[in-house]
Design a protein around this nucleic acid. Sequence first.
DNA 1: GGCCCTCTTTAGGGCCTT
Length: 335
Amino acid sequence: MRTVSMCFSLFPVPRCRFHTLAGSWWENFHKLGRTGGKGSKLNHLRSNNSDQEGGHTRKYVRTVTTKTDLKRKIALSKKSDVVGHETKYAMTISSDELHTNKIEISKVERKDFGTQQKVTENKDLVKLMTLIIFDIETTGFSRENERIIEIALQDLVGGENSTFQTLINPECYVPNAHVHGISTHMVSRPDVPRMKELIPILIEYIQSRQKPGGQVLWIGHNARTFDVPFLIKEFSRCSTEIPEDWLFMDTLPLARELVKSGGPNCPSKTSLQALREHYKIPLVGSAHRAMSDVYSLSLVLQRMTFDLKVPISGLVDRSFKASEISIVKKKKSSK
DNA sequence: GGCCCTCTTTAGGGCCTT
């Protein structure tokens, strides 16, 4: 039996460090929101988190993967695929069930929002958004010729299993280990999943973080022109569509807005490293590794949205769907 | 590759992602 190395924040250090930091994201945001006064748009953020603090149980968002239950996860994902677009599944796992491997799959009602605009028009729907910071490492810049070799996610709600991280076997040589420290040897180990094996697990993980009837907002730096096209290409290679209820948001335009706004306290550059240094955010983990950049971006986003007074609905306003990127590409290539 | 800016738009260079 093959086992797969993936990291969830339920596990011990270093993942627990990310777990703790993830929990502080909202707390810090609340402090910033309070300093913004009653009229601050950040009050949206405070209200959005009302059901995420105070010990409320979210039975619909618990997923656990260990090195020994990969096949079970894949089997669950295939079961979900049978239902297709009609229903959405989430796993309900109690502490007892964790020990007995007994997992109950329950149907969750699905709402079709149509467009992200409808979400921003309804503040109640904004509360249903799941914000996922993500980053990928690749073998190069070309989505056509290069492959993803690492992915990391962080659900900004925090708590158990709020982070997801794994290397990915690209089934090719990794020429740029000097950039991220990920070598061909590291990704060629038998316990490192290939993309076709990872995609159903990734979808299952996202569904486990998703609120019933809610949408997921993936947030990445330069996501529109780099991370998302890479994801689309990798999904396409595996004959899988990016789920329609996945929205994406690029923080690079936010950074540009911030630089453009001027002022003595504005950053001068828009790279993630420059923003991290500008906000004096310490580097956690290895530079240019996916989880390290995810952690940096989660804090950079907090600071940028505060400086620009952008609420969660503002992030959704700036979101796009994977299908929109494909349409743009088709139009340009057809000329 | 896409976006942004400007000494631009009939263009070109810089930035951002690995």
